[in-house]
Amino acid sequence: MAISEDKVAHVAGLAKLAFSKEELQKFTGQMDEIINMVQQLSDIDTTGVKVTTHITDSINTMREDVAVKGTERELLMKNVPEHQDGFIKVPAIIDENEEA
């Protein structure tokens, strides 16, 4: 195996995803196959080869610094799942079961 269930669980934590035990098993198997497939890249000698992370030829794109009207607050709230008095509502940031 190129990747363990523990490692997949760790990655799921980083990605803010939760899996059941069965799902974790399934994903570990699938991730393992994909990782085996992509590992063929290690056969290629890339010594001194630059990375390509984008393909635009522009370096810095500048614009005039002028004030423009922003979006109406009411409109911005249109797709917010829960809001009150113009603010986005979220559950307690500190776990209710934890000691303050």
Binding site: A15, K16, L17, A18, F19, V90, P91, A92, I93, D95
Partner: peptide
């Protein structure tokens, strides 16, 4: 129950 739950459960 908490903010972490919102992220993880909503995405999952």
């Amino acid at each position: 129950k908490n903010l972490e739950d919102v992220y993880v459960k909503s995405r999952s």
